[in-house]
Design a protein around this nucleic acid. Sequence first.
DNA 1: GCAATTCCTACTGAATCAGTATGAGTTCCA
DNA 2: TGGAACTCATACTGATTCAGTAGGAATTGC
Lengths: 150, 150
Amino acid sequence: MKLSSRTEYAVRAMAELAEMHGGGPISLREIAARQDIPEKYLEQLFRQLRKAELISGLRGAQGGYSLAREPCEITVGDIMRAVDGPIAVCSCAAEGKGDADCERKSHCAAHPVWAKLQDGIVSILDSTTLYDMLAKTATQDMQGNRGGGS
Amino acid sequence: MKLSSRTEYAVRAMAELAEMHGGGPISLREIAARQDIPEKYLEQLFRQLRKAELISGLRGAQGGYSLAREPCEITVGDIMRAVDGPIAVCSCAAEGKGDADCERKSHCAAHPVWAKLQDGIVSILDSTTLYDMLAKTATQDMQGNRGGGS
DNA sequence: GCAATTCCTACTGAATCAGTATGAGTTCCA
DNA sequence: TGGAACTCATACTGATTCAGTAGGAATTGC
Ligand code: FES
Ligand code: FES
């Protein structure tokens, strides 16, 4: 029940890209440096993001990457699926599997729970766009919960 | 973003135990057989569930396991934490970590998303009890979606 | 033409995970 | 009283996945 580093990195990098949206393309190197992500690793992720048509790359000197759509049109779920494949809480409750799931499913007490969990996760991920993310970091007061309780 | 087999097995086994709740203790072997889970593996999980005081074991011949509380008092979250440790969507957003998290957190655009996700997951897991699970499998009509496509 | 950059494949070392093996301690029953 | 049926505990292993690296080809601006 944990996010992969691919997802964590990819989302952070995309947020960075969204923040710069509108200007020219930004080099992978710059993003990697600003977010402290291994360059070569991020390169791999960007290739997948590009294949998913979330970003577009511009080769050559002065090249770089930029968003392929508006920030409000890219969700965290999109990013996650691009780098990690379909979202699946467990093999018995994955998205995009019409019928050929677990044979046990019909009489399994656990299945409705996994389905509900899957649904909850997907709906959060799919309803949060890059735009939302930036907006939230700007109005940072709701997160300002510091001062450890004893 | 996937459940461990520990969790999947443990929840299924606990559901089995809940179904039998009220009668005498049930042997691990029987549960393992009915749910098709490797015996020795399940034994390991049961030891953890016992330490977490979710079940209690009775040794010797005719011994076995039984729930240590009522089914409505045991949540899926309890089971999960018992076998897999604290629930943490990522290291930056784990439960029970007051302050010493990621240093990046305060200006990280991704963090609110992880926090929300974490929160959503935990609230589903903590609000579903074994009792709820059994009730849902009883009224199985909402799940009765069969008949292969094409 | 050369420097900066994206694009692509393959590899590796480490960590985690699922599952086994083995044996000791306990209790019921014949 | 002995043994069968259990739980309890620890340690090990093999497989798989994951995070990260290496090396190089193709493209473009200056
Ligand atoms: S084991 Fe597959 S649905 Fe429960
Ligand atoms: S990287 Fe830790 S909160 Fe975003």
